[in-house]
């Protein structure tokens, strides 16, 4: 679905943001991009929609070379929710904001209405339908940007720091949405520093450092590699730390608190 072939990207000021990245994301995969600030995560995802073109190497999205394809046509397949929601909200009302991309893609008025209703309902924004998006709280704005992306049903959903400004309930809902997208066969790429949020989703984890991919594998394996995580300044999930601290432990780390509780209760019964 998405393929980075030896991608290097050098900014105009000469700073090398990506350094020979080779990575393949299959359709339907859920991938988490983690790494310290400035590791190149956001730069990497901007290549998927052709917002940035590689200095050397190739990015192939659904068989199309991003150098030869416009951002507008790539964005029909790839939806990106950027870090800062204030960078995209401009309409007079929340529903108009949601319909913006749908109208750009030429959806029929009936379909636009249906998709807007669905998105507002999914993210609990129905009561703000007629409100200005600019007066929403930070968390609500973030949810609105996600709803805007999901409304046109892209094959690939990229979420850049989706948990910033979200309370724990909203984070749980967001994790649920990602799982729902996964079961719907969507390719999901999440850029996040929020390891505790990512861990229960159990994505494939790609670790980046100084513009390079330094680790790649299932969350259960990558998140146990203390040396790798420390070198990329990524914290280990608390449940993994707990698991590794046990003298007797189950075959794999606890996926969530409930999983850990069940295991401890069984041990107590014995």
């Amino acid at each position: 679905m998405i393929e980075f072939q030896g991608v290097t990207f050098v900014h105009q000021n000469g700073v090398k943001a990506l350094d020979g990245v080779t990575l393949k994301v299959e359709a339907g995969e859920t991938v988490a991009l983690v790494g310290e600030n400035g590791a190149g995560k956001t730069t990497l995802v901007k290549h998927v929609t052709g917002l940035l073109k590689p200095t050397t190497g190739k990015v192939i999205v659904d068989g199309h070379d991003t150098k030869q394809t416009s951002t507008a046509s790539l964005s029909r397949k790839v939806g990106v929710a950027f870090q800062n929601p204030d960078h995209q909200l401009f309409s007079e009302s929340v529903e108009e904001e949601m319909s913006f991309a749908l109208r750009n893609f030429g959806f029929s008025p009936e379909l636009v209405r249906k998709r807007v209703d669905w998105g507002l309902g999914l993210f609990g924004l129905d009561e703000y339908r007629k409100s200005s998006p600019l007066v929403l709280s930070g968390g609500e704005k973030k949810r609105l940007t996600l709803a805007c992306i999901l409304a046109w049903d892209p094959d690939v959903v990229i979420l850049d720091e989706p948990t910033v400004g979200q309370d724990s309930i909203q984070k749980e809902k967001l994790a649920g949405t990602i799982k729902m997208l996964r079961s719907a066969g969507k390719t999901v790429v999440v850029v996040s520093h929020d390891i505790e949020f990512l861990w229960p989703i159990q994505p494939r984890v790609v670790v980046m450092k100084s513009g390079r991919v330094v680790g790649d594998g299932p969350a259960a394996l990558v998140m146990q590699d203390e040396t790798l995580l420390a070198s990329a300044r990524v914290a280990q999930p608390q449940l993994v730390e707990l698991y590794r601290g046990l003298s007797e432990r189950p075959p794999g780390p606890f996926v969530d608190a409930l999983d850990a509780r069940r295991w401890f209760e069984e041990r107590m019964k014995r």
């Binding site: 917002l51 964005s75 990106v80 950027f82 991309a101 893609f105």
Partner: peptide
């Protein structure tokens, strides 16, 4: 902002001068 709007299908470089100016509204307001 331009990146965010382009990712939602906005084509800033398309159309005549009047359309291009109108296309800048989603960039200028934010």
């Amino acid at each position: 902002i331009m990146d965010a709007q382009k990712s939602r299908g906005l084509e800033l470089e398309k159309g005549n001068i009047f359309r291009r100016v109108r296309n800048m509204i989603p960039v200028l307001i934010p």
